[in-house]
């Protein structure tokens, strides 16, 4: 009756964590701040890459936008994908799951 697509958004630049808006506003910025910012970014990128590798094993394909990587599958159900990521050691806060159902032909 329905088809679905599971989308998992993984933010490479998590603006809430890195607070880049704050970075632009700080007038007296120092090297340590930038170095710390770089470390956070590298750490985050590594986590996203690891998630991508796990999801690729389950047949997910990937697209990207400005600050995120989006994994998509029409075979793996959303809750199953979420449980899998949690079992692999990732946390709820590292990804967002979006599940979209569509009617198959003609349905009322």
């Amino acid at each position: 009756m329905v088809e679905y697509i599971t989308r998992i958004t993984m933010k490479v630049i998590n603006r809430e964590e890195l607070d880049t808006s704050n970075l632009k506003k700080v007038s007296e910025i120092d090297a340590d701040y930038i170095r710390s910012f770089g470390h956070q970014l590298a750490e985050r990128s590594e986590r996203v890459a690891a998630m991508m590798e796990r999801l690729a094993e389950r047949g997910f394909t990937f697209t990207a936008n400005q600050d995120s990587v989006i994994a998509e599958s029409t075979k793996v159900e959303a809750q199953a994908a979420k449980i899998y990521l949690l079992q692999e050691g990732f946390h709820d806060s590292e990804f967002q799951v979006y599940l979209e159902y569509t009617r198959k032909w003609g349905m009322l």
């Binding site: 009756m1 159900e77 809750q79 979006y98 599940l99 159902y101």
Partner: peptide, 16 residues
């Protein structure tokens, strides 16, 4: 049913 099923990550069977 489709919108809420997607929002709460219901299984395909639930939505059907």
């Amino acid at each position: 049913a489709i919108a809420i099923g997607g929002a709460c990550r219901a299984e395909k069977q639930h939505v059907s």
